[in-house]
Every structure is written in C-alpha cells, then in structure tokens.
Amino acid sequence: MSLHPLIPWPLVVVIGLLLVGFTTWRLVADPRRRGRWALRLVTGLVMVVALLGPAVNGGIAQQAASDVNVFFVVDTTTSSMARDHNGKQTRLEGYREDIAKIQKEMPGARFSLITFDYATRVVMPLTTDTTALQAAASTMRAENSLYSGGSSVTAAGERLRTTLEGAQERAPERSRIVFYLGDGEQTASSRPTPFDVGDLVDGGAVLGYGTKQGGKMATTRGDGSAGEDVTDSEGNPGISTIDEQQLEEIADQFDVPYTHRTGGDISPALEQADPGTTSDAAGAEIEIYTSVVWVLAVILALLLSIDLFLVTREISRLRRATP
C-alpha cells in the first residue's frame, strides 16, 4: 500500500484536523444527535483518507528510453492521391500506415511531422505525445488541386534545415532521424534544389511510394475530400509514376538508404535506416500502482446520501410539527 495525495499533504492534514476536530466536538456536545455526528465523523475520515490517494502497489516497470528526434517529411502534392500503393490504395494511405508503424517501433522518441506541396508546413513540432502524432497523420490531406501548379520534391529543404538546426541547438545530445516519404515525381519546370542537411542528419531513410506503371489520381477539394480523377487538356486520365532515381538522389543527400515501400512489415526498412542511438538499455524504473480512491469515493457518496436523507427527513418532520 502506498499514498499518492490528490492535493499537497500538508493541506490534507489541515482539512483532516478541521473535519475530525469539529465533528468530534459536536459528537460530545450534542448527545441527542450523537448518531448523526458519528456518521459525519466517519464521513470526514473517509474524505481525508481519499485525499491521501491510497493505492495498491504493483510491480516495477521499465520506462521506454530513447534519445532520438524523428522528423517525418511527407509529400502531400496531388500525386499522393495516386492509387497504386499496395494494390489500389492511395500513396497517402501508405504514408499514414508507415508513420504509425515507425512510431510503434521507436518508443520514447520525439516525433515531428512536416508536409510539403505548394507550401511547406510543420504540422506537428517535436513531441513524445504519440496520440498527437496519430491524429496529425490521420488528418493529413493532399493539397487542394486548385492550387496545384507544379511542385518540387525538395520544397521542404529550407524549412527542414531550420527545424533540424533548432533541434540541434536545443538538444545536441539527441540524434536527429529523418524519414522522407514521397514518390519523387518532380512536376516543377526547374530541377530540384538539393537538400543541404547532410551534416544535421544522423540516420533515417527515404521511403518511396507508387509504381513505374503509375496510378490515376483523384482531384482534391479544400476539405481534403476526393473529387473526379485528374485529366489532361485532352481529357486523358492523369497518371503519376514513381521516380526512384530522384528518390535515391535525395537519399544520397541525406546519406541514408532508400527503400521502396509496397506495404507490409516496416522492420526491414528500419534495420537499413540505422535509426540512430535509440537506447537498447531499459529506461528508468517506474512503480506501477492501482489507485483505490474510487472505492473510497463510492463509500463517501453513500455516506453523504444517508446524511442527506436523514437531514431531509428531519426537516420534513419539523415542517409537519409547525402549526
């Protein structure tokens, strides 16, 4: 058994002295209502014990430990809606699935999500909150097709470097791991500006999505919903294909391996990625306990209900006795 006070324990002591002291005094001073004050004394004692936060001790667990910052750089241009990932899934669905898989394989790491299309956005800054990462990935949408006017596969270069420099300055001891997720399709007229972040990246991988045969793409609206398929000026369906040579060049710029993703287990890709210095040793020991405050809360509610019933009954009796 252990105690985990719900409020600072000195305040619990003060409240306890006041409650127990007052009810004990009334118990002695008002013998006609001794039963009522005994009930309130018990109620006060239960309340004080509940505020102390009693708990049943469990075992000792090892806290996940990691000294890694992980940055996902994700291509959300219209081509991410091409339906040629793992059958007929969109590439965007593949991004979401792999982000979730990587997160599960790297417990304790801090994660950040950066997307790029006609603009680059830090959707989620570094955090250990995996629920926030899951929410950010699940709500990730392809760009609005109305604003699609040609994109560069390295559009996130400047923002990524600034973000990595900030992470290095704040926590130089933590490794910086970058996972680039995209299809490598350069639709801007100019050649992509190389990423200049090799000195800031300690590991990661470039993950490629799509096929050489390509897939049809749906247009996207402002709310992220899919519309009709993309067509060219002559009404022919727009086809997006993967450019693995471009993706391999990006991998060289990061000095990380390139892996073509078609779904399935992410572990082989992570093994090639050299994900930095994730600690193999167990983290700090943390005590596991089960709080029993809820049991005391139920008892307290029952005692208060009995007291309320008795008070209400007495008030009713006095009203009937009054002429």
Score class of each variant (00 low, 15 high):
29 A>P: 02
135 A>M: 12
152 S>D: 15
222 G>S: 14
178 V>K: 02
252 D>I: 09
176 R>K: 11
141 R>H: 08
141 R>I: 11
305 S>L: 15
213 Q>E: 13
297 A>S: 12
162 T>Y: 00
132 A>T: 09
150 G>K: 00
48 V>W: 00
122 V>A: 07
317 R>W: 00
171 A>E: 13
103 Q>E: 13
50 A>R: 01
149 G>A: 12
100 A>I: 11
190 S>K: 13
144 N>A: 10
218 A>R: 04
1 M>I: 15
281 A>F: 11
305 S>C: 13
84 D>G: 05
297 A>Y: 08
158 E>N: 15
294 W>R: 15
269 A>M: 04
298 V>S: 13
267 S>I: 14
89 Q>G: 14
248 E>Q: 11
25 W>G: 12
217 M>F: 01
280 D>W: 00
235 G>A: 11
171 A>Y: 00
298 V>H: 10
283 G>V: 04
164 L>G: 04
259 T>C: 08
55 A>H: 08
183 D>K: 01
33 R>H: 07
11 L>I: 14
53 G>M: 06
26 R>M: 15
72 F>E: 02
213 Q>S: 10
136 A>Y: 00
40 R>T: 06
282 A>P: 12
24 T>S: 15
191 R>Q: 15
236 N>S: 10
248 E>M: 04
241 T>K: 12
62 Q>P: 00
86 N>L: 05
186 Q>E: 14
193 T>Q: 14
219 T>F: 04
264 G>Y: 03
197 V>R: 03
188 A>G: 14
157 G>E: 01
83 R>A: 12
155 A>V: 07
123 V>D: 14
210 G>Y: 01
38 A>N: 03
245 Q>Y: 04
266 I>N: 07
258 Y>T: 01
216 K>Y: 03
83 R>W: 02
72 F>H: 04
292 V>W: 10
151 S>C: 07
287 E>R: 08
49 V>T: 09
279 S>C: 01
290 T>M: 13
85 H>E: 06
114 I>G: 01
167 A>F: 03
25 W>Y: 13
296 L>C: 12
226 A>H: 08
291 S>C: 12
175 S>L: 08
47 M>E: 02
296 L>K: 03
246 Q>N: 15
15 I>R: 00
241 T>E: 10
63 Q>H: 07
127 T>W: 11
257 P>R: 04
287 E>N: 08
